[in-house]
């Protein structure tokens, strides 16, 4: 992250996120979903589907995509872009794992 202002915030241990699942982090009024992928990489996006505001953290992870639990919209976790034929975008957050600890940057 080249951004000088980026400050890493400790969130939780990687082990505290169930494998191939997610958990939510509250930052004020914003809820962020932190996903632990099959290969233990982590991704973070806003926990709010652009369609009907479904809680993305409860969806099924498919590769690097998340499927919204309400109406199965498919959202790419890297850039937050919704897959066709649907349209939209979700805010993404920088996230990293160091020594089994998950860090997030707002």
């Amino acid at each position: 992250m080249g951004n000088a202002t980026a400050a890493w915030i400790e969130v939780c241990k990687l082990d505290e996120i169930p494998p191939s699942q997610a958990r939510t982090v509250n930052a004020g009024d914003t809820v962020i979903a932190v996903f632990r992928l099959t290969d233990d990489r982590v991704k973070a996006i806003e926990n709010r589907c652009p369609h009907k505001h479904g809680p993305l953290a409860e969806g099924i992870i498919s590769g690097d995509d998340i499927l919204c639990p309400l109406h199965n919209w498919r959202i790419h976790l890297d850039d937050g872009v919704v897959a066709a034929p649907d349209e939209g975008c979700v805010k993404t957050y920088p996230v990293k794992v160091e020594d089994g600890q998950v860090f997030l940057s707002l």
Partner: peptide
Amino acid sequence: NKFSEYKRIDIPV
């Protein structure tokens, strides 16, 4: 490690 997703995490804004 198992069912922790039920628990809430808060971080400073």
